[in-house]
Amino acid sequence: MGLRHEARLVLVAVQFLTRLPVRIPLQDGRFDPAWLHACARHFPLVGAVVGGWGALVLAGAAALWPPVVAVLLSMAATVWLTGGFHEDGVADTCDGLGGAVTRERALEIMKDSRLGSYGALGLGLTLALKAVALTALLATAGPALTAAALVLAHGLSRAATVVMLRLLPYGGDLAHAKAKPLAQQISRAGLAVALGWGALLAAAAVLAGWPPLRVLAVVAAMALVVAVCARWLRQRLGGYTGDALGATQQWTELAAYLALVAALPGAWELA
């Protein structure tokens, strides 16, 4: 039951976070909604898969086109694989929390499918910074290390969302939550599993050639973003929402690339 159940939870996480066609082995012919909550501990593993897909596209494209083209194709590939799931969270979060509105009004705006000026600016700047940072990384560190960075950043940024699930209560309208099982605090055991995946990904990045201190800088930068987002969300909404988790993923992923590029001599001049 143990390993089979964990394998099932991995598939649930893949189905939830990506558009990959996976078949979930049911229990007594039924899907248990509790699996959606429990599968969060495997989000970093799914993030690593998404990053690995982006890394494959990056490596292939870098052999044919300039770094900026390879980076944009890689980003497009990961957006396609996830259906823009997290990017949508950035836009909605910026729209809802960009202005000086009440909590109730912010939640109302975040549920609106229309894109506002704050959302457009927030998403545009996030993607632009990510593209420039990755281009600088590819031009200076090379395809192999940049590929490893993609796997690391995508995996650890999903771990960051699990940390948020532990730090904060649900701050949205529970009656209208799209994924109600996720609208509850994750257990310590679940957080430990997610952090364990993160530790394995950090070790893999070191084995791939990234210096340990650089990987620690990535973890520190991402932890800082999580702390800032958690404080901001607690003050504005009283907790997290699904959109806020998506924004946290995107901004911690960006923080990872910025931390890696910061110590590379001449990186920004080559971007």
Rank of each mutant, 00 (worst) to 15 (best):
L233P: 11
R234N: 07
A230C: 07
V225Q: 10
R234H: 12
A247T: 03
V225N: 07
P211T: 05
V206L: 12
A223L: 10
G238L: 10
W232R: 08
V225D: 07
L213T: 13
L224N: 12
L245Y: 09
T241K: 01
G209E: 15
G246N: 11
A204Q: 10
A220L: 05
L207F: 09
P211A: 05
A223D: 03
W232I: 01
V226E: 02
L216G: 13
G242T: 10
V215D: 04
A202H: 02
A220E: 00
Y240A: 00
W232Q: 11
W210I: 11
D243L: 07
Q235D: 13
P211S: 03
A244D: 10
L224V: 15
G239C: 04
L237T: 01
R214D: 14
D243Q: 04
V206F: 13
V219Y: 06
G239H: 09
C229Q: 14
R214V: 09
L245G: 09
Y240V: 02
Y240E: 00
V228Q: 15
V206Q: 09
V226R: 01
Q249I: 07
V219Q: 13
V226Y: 02
R214I: 13
V228T: 13
Y240F: 14
V206G: 14
G239R: 10
L224P: 10
G238S: 04
A227E: 02
V218L: 04
W210Q: 09
Q235V: 15
R236I: 02
W210G: 03
A223I: 02
A247S: 13
G242E: 05
A244V: 15
A203Y: 10
